[in-house]
Design a protein around this nucleic acid. Structure first.
Lengths: 219, 219
DNA sequence: TGTCTAAATTTTGTATACAATACTGAATTG
DNA sequence: CAATTCAGTATTGTATACAAAATTTAGACA
Protein backbone atom coordinates (compact mmCIF):
# COMPACT_ATOMS: atom_id res chain seq x y z
CA UNK A 1 0.00 0.00 0.00
CA UNK A 2 1.18 3.47 -0.89
CA UNK A 3 0.21 5.08 2.42
CA UNK A 4 3.14 3.42 4.19
CA UNK A 5 5.53 5.06 1.75
CA UNK A 6 3.74 8.40 1.93
CA UNK A 7 3.97 8.40 5.72
CA UNK A 8 7.59 7.31 5.71
CA UNK A 9 8.69 9.98 3.27
CA UNK A 10 6.61 12.66 5.01
CA UNK A 11 8.16 11.86 8.36
CA UNK A 12 11.64 11.89 6.85
CA UNK A 13 10.97 15.25 5.22
CA UNK A 14 9.60 16.81 8.41
CA UNK A 15 12.53 15.55 10.44
CA UNK A 16 14.97 16.89 7.86
CA UNK A 17 16.47 13.46 7.26
CA UNK A 18 15.60 14.16 3.65
CA UNK A 19 16.82 17.64 2.88
CA UNK A 20 14.92 19.95 0.52
CA UNK A 21 16.03 19.38 -3.05
CA UNK A 22 16.97 15.74 -2.52
CA UNK A 23 16.22 13.57 -5.50
CA UNK A 24 13.71 10.82 -4.82
CA UNK A 25 14.49 8.20 -7.41
CA UNK A 26 11.65 5.82 -8.02
CA UNK A 27 13.87 2.75 -8.09
CA UNK A 28 15.73 3.72 -4.96
CA UNK A 29 12.60 4.42 -2.94
CA UNK A 30 11.00 1.26 -4.26
CA UNK A 31 13.90 -0.90 -3.15
CA UNK A 32 13.94 0.66 0.31
CA UNK A 33 10.29 -0.14 0.86
CA UNK A 34 10.31 -3.36 -1.12
CA UNK A 35 7.65 -2.37 -3.64
CA UNK A 36 7.57 -1.71 -7.35
CA UNK A 37 7.86 1.67 -8.99
CA UNK A 38 4.11 1.63 -9.61
CA UNK A 39 3.41 2.16 -5.92
CA UNK A 40 6.23 4.63 -5.50
CA UNK A 41 4.92 6.76 -8.35
CA UNK A 42 1.51 6.85 -6.78
CA UNK A 43 2.99 7.87 -3.43
CA UNK A 44 5.13 10.58 -4.99
CA UNK A 45 2.15 11.93 -6.89
CA UNK A 46 0.22 12.14 -3.65
CA UNK A 47 3.08 13.96 -1.94
CA UNK A 48 3.26 16.34 -4.87
CA UNK A 49 -0.42 17.23 -4.35
CA UNK A 50 0.36 18.23 -0.78
CA UNK A 51 3.37 20.20 -2.01
CA UNK A 52 5.96 18.27 -0.04
CA UNK A 53 7.49 16.97 -3.25
CA UNK A 54 8.04 18.58 -6.62
CA UNK A 55 7.71 16.53 -9.78
CA UNK A 56 9.46 17.68 -12.93
CA UNK A 57 8.47 16.06 -16.16
CA UNK A 58 10.97 13.44 -17.30
CA UNK A 59 13.30 14.46 -14.48
CA UNK A 60 11.66 12.93 -11.45
CA UNK A 61 10.65 13.86 -7.93
CA UNK A 62 12.50 16.03 -5.43
CA UNK A 63 11.88 17.00 -1.85
CA UNK A 64 10.18 20.38 -2.06
CA UNK A 65 12.11 23.50 -1.19
CA UNK A 66 9.49 26.11 -0.34
CA UNK A 67 10.51 29.65 -1.17
CA UNK A 68 10.42 32.52 1.27
CA UNK A 69 7.40 33.83 -0.53
CA UNK A 70 5.61 30.50 -0.23
CA UNK A 71 6.42 30.44 3.48
CA UNK A 72 4.78 33.85 3.91
CA UNK A 73 1.73 32.77 1.96
CA UNK A 74 1.23 29.59 3.94
CA UNK A 75 1.22 31.48 7.21
CA UNK A 76 -1.01 34.21 5.83
CA UNK A 77 -3.48 31.52 4.87
CA UNK A 78 -3.26 29.95 8.29
CA UNK A 79 -3.81 33.36 9.89
CA UNK A 80 -7.06 33.68 7.97
CA UNK A 81 -8.43 30.17 8.30
CA UNK A 82 -7.35 28.81 11.65
CA UNK A 83 -8.82 31.55 13.85
CA UNK A 84 -12.20 30.85 12.27
CA UNK A 85 -11.68 27.14 12.85
CA UNK A 86 -10.74 27.80 16.47
CA UNK A 87 -13.93 29.77 16.98
CA UNK A 88 -15.97 26.91 15.55
CA UNK A 89 -14.14 24.43 17.76
CA UNK A 90 -14.82 26.51 20.86
CA UNK A 91 -18.54 26.24 20.21
CA UNK A 92 -18.46 22.45 20.02
CA UNK A 93 -15.96 21.82 22.77
CA UNK A 94 -16.76 19.27 25.49
CA UNK A 95 -15.12 17.08 28.14
CA UNK A 96 -13.87 14.43 25.78
CA UNK A 97 -11.99 17.01 23.80
CA UNK A 98 -10.42 18.35 26.98
CA UNK A 99 -8.80 15.04 27.87
CA UNK A 100 -7.59 14.47 24.35
CA UNK A 101 -5.98 17.89 23.97
CA UNK A 102 -4.54 17.72 27.48
CA UNK A 103 -2.80 14.47 26.64
CA UNK A 104 -1.53 16.05 23.47
CA UNK A 105 -0.02 19.00 25.29
CA UNK A 106 1.60 16.66 27.80
CA UNK A 107 3.16 14.65 24.99
CA UNK A 108 4.51 17.87 23.49
CA UNK A 109 6.09 18.83 26.81
CA UNK A 110 7.66 15.42 27.11
CA UNK A 111 9.09 15.41 23.61
CA UNK A 112 10.49 18.89 24.18
CA UNK A 113 12.00 17.85 27.52
CA UNK A 114 13.67 14.89 25.85
CA UNK A 115 15.00 17.19 23.18
CA UNK A 116 13.24 15.27 20.42
CA UNK A 117 12.74 18.24 18.11
CA UNK A 118 11.24 16.22 15.27
CA UNK A 119 8.58 14.68 17.45
CA UNK A 120 7.77 17.99 19.15
CA UNK A 121 7.25 19.61 15.77
CA UNK A 122 5.02 16.79 14.61
CA UNK A 123 2.92 16.89 17.77
CA UNK A 124 2.58 20.64 17.58
CA UNK A 125 1.19 20.31 14.07
CA UNK A 126 -1.16 17.53 15.09
CA UNK A 127 -2.54 19.80 17.80
CA UNK A 128 -3.75 22.25 15.19
CA UNK A 129 -5.21 19.43 13.15
CA UNK A 130 -7.00 18.10 16.24
CA UNK A 131 -8.67 21.47 16.69
CA UNK A 132 -9.92 21.31 13.12
CA UNK A 133 -11.40 17.90 13.83
CA UNK A 134 -13.21 19.32 16.83
CA UNK A 135 -14.60 22.08 14.62
CA UNK A 136 -16.03 19.24 12.52
CA UNK A 137 -15.76 21.09 9.23
CA UNK A 138 -14.27 18.75 6.64
CA UNK A 139 -13.36 21.39 4.09
CA UNK A 140 -11.50 23.52 6.62
CA UNK A 141 -9.95 20.40 8.12
CA UNK A 142 -8.48 19.47 4.75
CA UNK A 143 -7.11 22.98 4.33
CA UNK A 144 -5.60 23.01 7.80
CA UNK A 145 -4.05 19.61 7.25
CA UNK A 146 -2.48 20.76 4.03
CA UNK A 147 -1.19 23.98 5.57
CA UNK A 148 0.16 22.26 8.67
CA UNK A 149 2.11 19.79 6.55
CA UNK A 150 3.62 22.55 4.50
CA UNK A 151 4.38 24.47 7.68
CA UNK A 152 6.28 21.51 9.08
CA UNK A 153 8.63 21.59 6.14
CA UNK A 154 8.86 25.38 6.24
CA UNK A 155 9.68 25.39 9.94
CA UNK A 156 12.26 22.68 9.44
CA UNK A 157 13.89 24.92 6.83
CA UNK A 158 13.51 28.40 8.25
CA UNK A 159 13.14 28.16 12.02
CA UNK A 160 15.25 30.84 13.70
CA UNK A 161 16.37 29.24 16.94
CA UNK A 162 17.12 25.55 16.63
CA UNK A 163 16.72 25.12 20.38
CA UNK A 164 13.39 26.68 21.20
CA UNK A 165 10.03 25.40 20.14
CA UNK A 166 8.16 27.88 22.34
CA UNK A 167 4.71 26.68 21.40
CA UNK A 168 3.21 25.10 24.45
CA UNK A 169 2.21 28.36 26.06
CA UNK A 170 -0.15 29.32 23.25
CA UNK A 171 -1.58 25.84 23.10
CA UNK A 172 -2.41 26.08 26.77
CA UNK A 173 -4.09 29.43 26.28
CA UNK A 174 -6.14 27.94 23.45
CA UNK A 175 -7.27 25.07 25.69
CA UNK A 176 -8.41 27.59 28.26
CA UNK A 177 -10.51 29.52 25.76
CA UNK A 178 -12.01 26.27 24.47
CA UNK A 179 -12.91 25.09 27.94
CA UNK A 180 -14.65 28.38 28.61
CA UNK A 181 -16.52 28.07 25.33
CA UNK A 182 -15.07 31.46 24.45
CA UNK A 183 -15.20 31.53 20.67
CA UNK A 184 -14.02 35.10 20.28
CA UNK A 185 -11.15 34.52 22.68
CA UNK A 186 -10.10 31.31 20.95
CA UNK A 187 -10.17 33.11 17.63
CA UNK A 188 -7.93 35.87 18.90
CA UNK A 189 -5.49 33.55 20.66
CA UNK A 190 -5.19 31.47 17.53
CA UNK A 191 -4.58 34.50 15.36
CA UNK A 192 -1.76 35.76 17.53
CA UNK A 193 -0.35 32.26 17.85
CA UNK A 194 -0.10 31.94 14.08
CA UNK A 195 1.45 35.39 13.83
CA UNK A 196 3.98 34.31 16.46
CA UNK A 197 4.87 31.22 14.50
CA UNK A 198 5.20 33.30 11.35
CA UNK A 199 7.53 35.75 13.02
CA UNK A 200 9.58 32.91 14.47
CA UNK A 201 10.82 32.17 10.99
CA UNK A 202 13.96 33.63 9.50
CA UNK A 203 12.64 34.69 6.13
CA UNK A 204 15.35 37.19 5.28
CA UNK A 205 18.09 34.83 4.17
CA UNK A 206 18.78 35.32 0.50
CA UNK A 207 18.00 31.77 -0.53
CA UNK A 208 17.34 28.47 1.19
CA UNK A 209 20.41 26.27 0.96
CA UNK A 210 20.12 24.18 -2.17
CA UNK A 211 20.62 20.85 -0.50
CA UNK A 212 21.11 18.90 -3.69
CA UNK A 213 24.56 20.51 -3.84
CA UNK A 214 25.43 19.59 -0.29
CA UNK A 215 24.35 16.11 -1.17
CA UNK A 216 26.69 16.15 -4.13
CA UNK A 217 29.65 16.57 -1.77
CA UNK A 218 29.01 13.23 -0.16
CA UNK A 219 31.11 10.84 -2.32
CA UNK B 1 -0.63 12.63 -20.94
CA UNK B 2 -3.04 12.41 -18.04
CA UNK B 3 -4.09 16.07 -18.16
CA UNK B 4 -6.15 15.48 -21.27
CA UNK B 5 -8.16 12.83 -19.45
CA UNK B 6 -8.44 14.94 -16.32
CA UNK B 7 -9.81 17.86 -18.33
CA UNK B 8 -12.18 15.68 -20.29
CA UNK B 9 -13.66 14.02 -17.24
CA UNK B 10 -13.85 17.31 -15.35
CA UNK B 11 -15.74 18.96 -18.16
CA UNK B 12 -18.12 16.02 -18.42
CA UNK B 13 -18.75 16.12 -14.67
CA UNK B 14 -19.39 19.85 -14.63
CA UNK B 15 -21.75 19.63 -17.58
CA UNK B 16 -23.60 16.76 -15.95
CA UNK B 17 -22.92 14.42 -18.83
CA UNK B 18 -21.45 12.17 -16.18
CA UNK B 19 -23.96 12.03 -13.37
CA UNK B 20 -22.85 11.84 -9.73
CA UNK B 21 -22.37 8.23 -8.71
CA UNK B 22 -21.46 7.03 -12.19
CA UNK B 23 -18.84 4.31 -12.20
CA UNK B 24 -15.64 5.27 -13.98
CA UNK B 25 -14.15 1.96 -15.04
CA UNK B 26 -10.45 2.16 -15.76
CA UNK B 27 -10.66 0.02 -18.87
CA UNK B 28 -13.62 1.89 -20.26
CA UNK B 29 -12.07 5.32 -19.75
CA UNK B 30 -8.78 4.06 -21.13
CA UNK B 31 -10.37 2.80 -24.31
CA UNK B 32 -12.27 6.05 -24.84
CA UNK B 33 -9.09 8.09 -24.63
CA UNK B 34 -6.87 5.48 -26.23
CA UNK B 35 -4.45 5.11 -23.32
CA UNK B 36 -3.58 2.39 -20.90
CA UNK B 37 -5.00 1.97 -17.43
CA UNK B 38 -1.77 3.36 -16.00
CA UNK B 39 -2.61 6.83 -17.23
CA UNK B 40 -6.26 6.54 -16.32
CA UNK B 41 -5.40 5.58 -12.76
CA UNK B 42 -3.17 8.60 -12.45
CA UNK B 43 -5.92 10.86 -13.77
CA UNK B 44 -8.52 9.38 -11.44
CA UNK B 45 -6.19 9.83 -8.49
CA UNK B 46 -5.81 13.47 -9.41
CA UNK B 47 -9.56 13.94 -9.67
CA UNK B 48 -10.01 12.20 -6.34
CA UNK B 49 -7.59 14.66 -4.82
CA UNK B 50 -9.78 17.53 -5.99
CA UNK B 51 -12.85 15.69 -4.69
CA UNK B 52 -14.57 15.37 -8.03
CA UNK B 53 -14.19 11.61 -7.93
CA UNK B 54 -14.41 9.11 -5.09
CA UNK B 55 -12.14 6.08 -5.04
CA UNK B 56 -13.16 3.02 -3.06
CA UNK B 57 -10.54 0.41 -2.43
CA UNK B 58 -10.90 -2.60 -4.71
CA UNK B 59 -14.15 -1.16 -6.06
CA UNK B 60 -13.01 1.61 -8.31
CA UNK B 61 -13.72 5.26 -9.02
CA UNK B 62 -17.09 7.03 -9.12
CA UNK B 63 -18.18 10.53 -9.95
CA UNK B 64 -18.44 12.29 -6.59
CA UNK B 65 -21.83 13.02 -5.14
CA UNK B 66 -21.27 15.84 -2.66
CA UNK B 67 -23.62 15.81 0.30
CA UNK B 68 -25.74 18.75 1.39
CA UNK B 69 -23.38 19.21 4.29
CA UNK B 70 -20.38 19.29 1.98
CA UNK B 71 -22.12 21.87 -0.18
CA UNK B 72 -22.65 24.11 2.82
CA UNK B 73 -19.03 23.71 3.89
CA UNK B 74 -17.64 24.55 0.47
CA UNK B 75 -19.57 27.80 0.32
CA UNK B 76 -18.71 28.67 3.92
CA UNK B 77 -15.06 28.27 3.00
CA UNK B 78 -15.51 30.42 -0.07
CA UNK B 79 -17.25 33.07 2.01
CA UNK B 80 -14.20 33.24 4.24
CA UNK B 81 -11.44 33.07 1.66
CA UNK B 82 -12.65 34.82 -1.46
CA UNK B 83 -13.49 38.19 0.08
CA UNK B 84 -9.92 38.38 1.34
CA UNK B 85 -8.67 37.40 -2.10
CA UNK B 86 -10.87 40.06 -3.70
CA UNK B 87 -9.42 42.70 -1.39
CA UNK B 88 -5.89 41.65 -2.34
CA UNK B 89 -6.82 41.72 -6.02
CA UNK B 90 -8.24 45.22 -5.72
CA UNK B 91 -4.88 46.49 -4.47
CA UNK B 92 -3.01 45.07 -7.44
CA UNK B 93 -5.56 45.84 -10.11
CA UNK B 94 -4.47 47.61 -13.30
CA UNK B 95 -5.48 48.22 -16.91
CA UNK B 96 -4.44 44.84 -18.24
CA UNK B 97 -6.66 43.13 -15.72
CA UNK B 98 -9.58 45.34 -16.75
CA UNK B 99 -9.52 44.20 -20.35
CA UNK B 100 -9.13 40.56 -19.38
CA UNK B 101 -12.03 40.55 -16.93
CA UNK B 102 -14.19 42.60 -19.29
CA UNK B 103 -13.70 40.01 -22.00
CA UNK B 104 -14.57 37.33 -19.51
CA UNK B 105 -17.81 38.98 -18.53
CA UNK B 106 -18.72 39.45 -22.19
CA UNK B 107 -18.12 35.76 -22.83
CA UNK B 108 -20.35 34.89 -19.91
CA UNK B 109 -23.12 37.10 -21.30
CA UNK B 110 -22.78 35.49 -24.68
CA UNK B 111 -22.89 31.93 -23.34
CA UNK B 112 -25.93 32.81 -21.28
CA UNK B 113 -27.63 34.41 -24.27
CA UNK B 114 -26.99 31.28 -26.31
CA UNK B 115 -28.42 29.19 -23.50
CA UNK B 116 -25.21 27.23 -23.09
CA UNK B 117 -25.57 26.58 -19.39
CA UNK B 118 -22.49 24.40 -19.10
CA UNK B 119 -20.22 27.01 -20.63
CA UNK B 120 -21.75 29.83 -18.61
CA UNK B 121 -21.11 27.88 -15.42
CA UNK B 122 -17.53 27.15 -16.40
CA UNK B 123 -16.85 30.79 -17.28
CA UNK B 124 -18.40 31.99 -14.07
CA UNK B 125 -16.03 29.75 -12.13
CA UNK B 126 -13.07 30.89 -14.16
CA UNK B 127 -13.90 34.49 -13.31
CA UNK B 128 -13.36 33.78 -9.64
CA UNK B 129 -10.15 31.95 -10.42
CA UNK B 130 -8.98 34.90 -12.50
CA UNK B 131 -9.43 37.19 -9.52
CA UNK B 132 -7.26 34.87 -7.46
CA UNK B 133 -4.57 35.11 -10.11
CA UNK B 134 -4.73 38.88 -9.94
CA UNK B 135 -4.31 38.68 -6.18
CA UNK B 136 -1.08 36.79 -6.96
CA UNK B 137 -1.23 34.59 -3.88
CA UNK B 138 -0.48 31.02 -4.89
CA UNK B 139 -1.77 29.35 -1.75
CA UNK B 140 -5.11 31.14 -1.89
CA UNK B 141 -5.26 30.58 -5.64
CA UNK B 142 -4.97 26.83 -5.12
CA UNK B 143 -7.69 26.93 -2.50
CA UNK B 144 -9.99 29.00 -4.69
CA UNK B 145 -9.38 26.68 -7.62
CA UNK B 146 -10.24 23.67 -5.55
CA UNK B 147 -13.36 25.31 -4.13
CA UNK B 148 -14.54 26.56 -7.50
CA UNK B 149 -14.24 23.10 -9.00
CA UNK B 150 -16.22 21.56 -6.20
CA UNK B 151 -18.77 24.37 -6.52
CA UNK B 152 -19.25 23.59 -10.18
CA UNK B 153 -20.29 20.06 -9.33
CA UNK B 154 -22.41 21.23 -6.42
CA UNK B 155 -24.21 23.82 -8.53
CA UNK B 156 -24.80 21.24 -11.25
CA UNK B 157 -26.44 19.05 -8.61
CA UNK B 158 -28.30 21.50 -6.41
CA UNK B 159 -29.01 24.64 -8.42
CA UNK B 160 -32.58 25.78 -7.78
CA UNK B 161 -33.64 27.32 -11.06
CA UNK B 162 -32.31 25.51 -14.09
CA UNK B 163 -32.93 28.59 -16.24
CA UNK B 164 -31.24 31.41 -14.39
CA UNK B 165 -27.57 31.84 -13.86
CA UNK B 166 -27.97 35.33 -12.40
CA UNK B 167 -24.29 35.94 -11.81
CA UNK B 168 -23.19 38.62 -14.17
CA UNK B 169 -24.54 41.47 -12.07
CA UNK B 170 -22.24 40.71 -9.15
CA UNK B 171 -19.32 40.18 -11.45
CA UNK B 172 -19.89 43.62 -12.86
CA UNK B 173 -20.04 45.14 -9.39
CA UNK B 174 -16.77 43.42 -8.54
CA UNK B 175 -15.13 44.88 -11.63
CA UNK B 176 -16.26 48.32 -10.57
CA UNK B 177 -14.73 47.98 -7.11
CA UNK B 178 -11.51 46.64 -8.61
CA UNK B 179 -11.23 49.51 -11.06
CA UNK B 180 -11.69 51.98 -8.21
CA UNK B 181 -9.01 50.17 -6.22
CA UNK B 182 -11.61 49.82 -3.49
CA UNK B 183 -10.38 46.86 -1.45
CA UNK B 184 -13.01 47.09 1.26
CA UNK B 185 -15.78 47.42 -1.32
CA UNK B 186 -14.50 44.48 -3.34
CA UNK B 187 -14.33 42.40 -0.19
CA UNK B 188 -17.91 43.16 0.71
CA UNK B 189 -19.26 42.64 -2.80
CA UNK B 190 -17.51 39.31 -2.98
CA UNK B 191 -18.85 38.22 0.37
CA UNK B 192 -22.43 38.97 -0.57
CA UNK B 193 -21.93 37.40 -3.98
CA UNK B 194 -20.81 34.13 -2.39
CA UNK B 195 -23.73 34.26 0.03
CA UNK B 196 -26.03 34.79 -2.94
CA UNK B 197 -24.61 31.75 -4.71
CA UNK B 198 -24.95 29.71 -1.54
CA UNK B 199 -28.58 30.69 -1.11
CA UNK B 200 -29.26 29.92 -4.77
CA UNK B 201 -28.84 26.24 -3.97
CA UNK B 202 -31.67 23.96 -2.99
CA UNK B 203 -30.11 22.24 -0.02
CA UNK B 204 -33.29 21.01 1.59
CA UNK B 205 -34.00 18.00 -0.57
CA UNK B 206 -33.68 14.84 1.48
CA UNK B 207 -30.99 13.29 -0.64
CA UNK B 208 -29.28 13.97 -3.95
CA UNK B 209 -30.61 11.57 -6.55
CA UNK B 210 -28.35 8.54 -6.59
CA UNK B 211 -27.65 8.56 -10.27
CA UNK B 212 -26.12 5.09 -10.33
CA UNK B 213 -29.67 3.81 -10.03
CA UNK B 214 -30.96 5.95 -12.86
CA UNK B 215 -28.07 4.63 -14.85
CA UNK B 216 -29.12 1.09 -13.99
CA UNK B 217 -32.44 1.68 -15.76
CA UNK B 218 -30.74 2.23 -19.07
CA UNK B 219 -30.51 -1.31 -20.51
C1' DT C 1 -40.61 -18.64 -7.17
C1' DG C 2 -36.93 -17.16 -3.86
C1' DT C 3 -32.66 -17.66 -1.69
C1' DC C 4 -28.29 -19.45 -0.97
C1' DT C 5 -23.88 -21.19 -2.74
C1' DA C 6 -20.15 -21.58 -5.84
C1' DA C 7 -18.03 -21.26 -10.19
C1' DA C 8 -17.13 -17.92 -13.84
C1' DT C 9 -16.30 -13.32 -15.13
C1' DT C 10 -15.00 -8.83 -14.59
C1' DT C 11 -12.33 -5.23 -12.37
C1' DT C 12 -8.89 -3.43 -9.58
C1' DG C 13 -3.98 -3.86 -7.45
C1' DT C 14 0.79 -4.64 -8.35
C1' DA C 15 4.88 -6.00 -10.86
C1' DT C 16 7.41 -6.13 -14.86
C1' DA C 17 8.81 -5.10 -19.69
C1' DC C 18 9.60 -1.96 -23.21
C1' DA C 19 9.96 3.01 -25.08
C1' DA C 20 11.32 7.68 -24.68
C1' DT C 21 13.86 11.14 -22.49
C1' DA C 22 17.50 12.99 -19.76
C1' DC C 23 22.07 12.60 -17.80
C1' DT C 24 27.29 11.43 -17.96
C1' DG C 25 31.66 11.44 -19.55
C1' DA C 26 35.19 10.63 -22.81
C1' DA C 27 36.89 11.91 -27.15
C1' DT C 28 37.47 15.69 -30.39
C1' DT C 29 38.19 20.20 -32.00
C1' DG C 30 38.97 25.12 -31.91
C1' DC D 1 42.40 24.25 -21.86
C1' DA D 2 37.46 25.24 -22.72
C1' DA D 3 33.72 23.99 -25.19
C1' DT D 4 31.08 20.61 -27.85
C1' DT D 5 29.55 16.51 -29.78
C1' DC D 6 28.10 11.97 -29.42
C1' DA D 7 27.93 7.50 -27.67
C1' DG D 8 26.60 4.89 -23.46
C1' DT D 9 24.10 4.75 -19.18
C1' DA D 10 20.55 5.62 -16.09
C1' DT D 11 15.85 7.21 -15.12
C1' DT D 12 11.26 8.31 -16.10
C1' DG D 13 6.85 7.45 -19.07
C1' DT D 14 3.67 4.06 -20.71
C1' DA D 15 1.83 -0.46 -21.80
C1' DT D 16 1.14 -5.02 -20.69
C1' DA D 17 0.99 -9.25 -17.82
C1' DC D 18 -0.15 -11.45 -13.78
C1' DA D 19 -2.40 -11.64 -8.89
C1' DA D 20 -6.10 -10.57 -5.83
C1' DA D 21 -10.49 -8.99 -4.95
C1' DA D 22 -15.26 -8.07 -6.04
C1' DT D 23 -19.24 -8.75 -8.90
C1' DT D 24 -22.14 -11.50 -11.62
C1' DT D 25 -24.28 -15.61 -13.13
C1' DA D 26 -25.96 -20.40 -12.86
C1' DG D 27 -27.58 -23.96 -10.48
C1' DA D 28 -29.23 -26.45 -6.43
C1' DC D 29 -32.32 -26.66 -3.00
C1' DA D 30 -36.21 -25.44 -0.21
Amino acid sequence: MASRIIDGLQQAIFEHRLAPGTKLSEDEVGQIYGVSRTIVRSALQSLAYSQLVTIEKNRGAFVASPSVREAHEVFEARALIEPRVAAMAAKRFNEKHTTKLTKHIAAEHEAMALGDKGKALALSGEFHLEIAHIAAHDVFTDFVQSLVKRSSLIIAMYWKRPDTTCESHSHHALMKAFSAGDAVGAEEVMRSHIVDLHSGLDLHSKKPAQMSLADALKP
